[in-house]
Amino acid sequence: MRELSLHILDIVQNSIKAEADLIIIDIEADFTADRLSVTVTDDGMGMSKELLEKVTDPFTTTRKTRNVGMGLPLFKMAAEASGGEFDISSKEGMGTVVKASFGISSIDRVPLGELEETMGILLMGSPDRDFIMNYQIRTQSGLKEFNFDTREIKEELDDIPIDEYEIISSIKTYIKENIKETNGGLVL
């Protein structure tokens, strides 16, 4: 994948298939430790121990149509290629947490990319689910953050569906501008 935001889109699709109601995406860039971490936490159906053990094997999938599943293996590979780590934990009936970390300055780290596009597509595809994105940047001069929560937006929207084109496109601009401001000129 060319962007980490595409991995995020892909990994969150797993949460959606697991029937999660709330999906939390944490993105933390710590420039003081040269570490970028991406965590996707969901309250979906979770996995058995047996499935969890083999889930990063590309020849494992929950699909019935064919027997390969590349999403998690590719995410793991992207993390490890940049000197980072990958971890997944899950409990049946409780949900799943997927965490990957990346070396920010590694030449093999793919750029974070357009998070607003990923969020736009997720909201279009699953307007009834809720998404939280916590975006944090830590540098020598301190911590800056941007928190996005669809529950707050839906409250403001009242009876207007969140997946209307005009709403999605405003939300995308909102995310883009706030991330740019949080980054304060840093490039991820």
Partner: peptide
């Protein structure tokens, strides 16, 4: 749109369009 409060203006516009 810079803050969530700005969504009010879009909501009002949308209510007319959807009608």
């Amino acid at each position: 749109m810079k803050s969530i409060a700005d969504i009010n203006a879009i909501r009002e516009k949308m209510q007319k369009v959807l009608g």
